[in-house]
């Protein structure tokens, strides 16, 4: 027994000295002192030797165990220290995961949605292929309005519906205004509708498909100051604290009064540059909801008022980033050399 213990100690020490890694040292420890470890097994044999020899062997076993444990612990430190000299070129590039890219339209939609949701707007979605009624008639646009020409709106080759008119590719997100009034039943309404829109323009600065945001607020006592407040909030949140907005008189059939909203140019700080019109950039069209539109949505214009606004997603992104994409058609040509830049 004594011999066996000494042999185990010697052999283990020889083996230990050769070990170079923490893992191997731990393995050796288990091999000795684990449940089925050699040392553990040997110790179990203690029962078999005469009672009188047991204390001596016991003391020896303890001494050997203590010694082995000490040496193992020392070896672990040595191994750890040895690793310090392992050289690694930390300047070589890492191996990154493959990262994709979201289209700038998606990026802008998420960001704008978040900003409006914080002031109680809910995002909605309405048909992209729509009846003339929702796209025009309900928005106070009479049959002869120029926007209803073939030159301004895409029509679908289908027979018209007696009540709803022809089928069109929705030329603006405003088509969702009366649909939202119908959905809500009665005010208050705070909606933001973001969708694809279509118009027959296709050149360096127009694509036949584009994206718009539509905001619609209807409640008792809504007035122009609320519209201004909302834009100021949005402009500062989205574009930055130092930006200012202004309203200019404009004309839309479905709002009265109507405005165009401008924002100070972020690049020249309002001094005037190639990206803006003498310090201002057009942000969007807006106005107070026309009473005929409220009536079309079965809302009493004597009890409720509202405001609406709509603007282009693509433009908003470029205005924020200061991008001058020389050909807007690039956005939908899906060249990955373009898409991977965003």
């Amino acid at each position: 027994m004594e011999k066996e213990l000494n042999e185990l100690e010697n052999m283990s020490l020889v083996e230990l000295a050769k070990l170079k890694s923490d893992k191997d040292v731990n393995a050796l420890y288990l091999k000795l002192f684990g449940q089925n470890g050699n040392f553990t097994k040997l110790l179990k044999k203690l029962k078999e030797i005469p009672q009188s020899e047991r204390p001596i062997i016991g003391i020896l076993a303890n001494k050997i165990k203590k010694n082995l444990e000490e040496k193992i612990s020392k070896q672990k430190k040595l191994v750890a220290n040895n690793q310090l000299s392992d050289w690694l070129d930390v300047t070589a590039p890492g191996t990154p995961p493959k990262l994709g890219h979201l289209h700038i339209v998606s990026q802008t939609i998420s960001e704008v949605t978040r900003i409006f949701e914080r002031i109680g707007f809910t995002r909605r979605r309405y048909p992209e292929i729509e009846w003339e009624w929702y796209s025009f008639d309900s928005l106070n646009m009479p049959v002869n309005h120029p926007a209803r020409d073939d030159f301004e709106t895409f029509f679908i080759d289908l027979p018209p519906n007696l009540k709803m008119g022809k089928v069109v590719l929705s030329p603006h997100t405003s088509s969702g205004q009366v649909r939202e009034m119908e959905r809500a039943g009665k005010p208050p309404i705070r909606m933001i509708n973001i969708a694809k829109c279509y118009r027959p323009n296709w050149d360096i600065s127009h694509t036949p498909m584009f994206h718009q945001f539509e905001g619609l607020v209807i409640d008792k006592g809504i007035n122009i100051t609320h519209l201004k407040g909302t834009f100021e909030y949005f402009a500062k949140e989205f574009f930055g604290k130092d930006r200012k907005i202004r309203l200019r008189p404009f004309h839309f059939q479905f709002t009265e009064p109507s405005f165009e909203v401008d924002i100070t140019c972020g690049f020249c700080k309002g001094r005037g540059c190639r990206l803006c019109k003498e310090g201002w950039m057009e942000l969007c069209g807006s106005g107070m909801v026309h009473p005929n539109v409220l009536k079309a949505g079965k809302i009493d214009p004597m009890k409720y008022t509202g405001y609406a606004f709509g603007w282009g997603v693509e433009r908003t992104y470029m205005m924020k980033q200061g991008l001058k994409i020389d050909d807007l058609r690039l956005l939908y040509s899906n060249d990955i050399r373009f898409l991977e830049q965003f």
Binding site: R123, P188, G221, I224, T225, L247
Partner: peptide
Amino acid sequence: AEEVARIYGYHNLPSKLMSGEIPVTNRP
């Protein structure tokens, strides 16, 4: 109202956020 507002000057109107109740509708 539009004529009065524009000549008075939109820039002279204050900016406020709506104070009314926020409609409870679940986001789709």
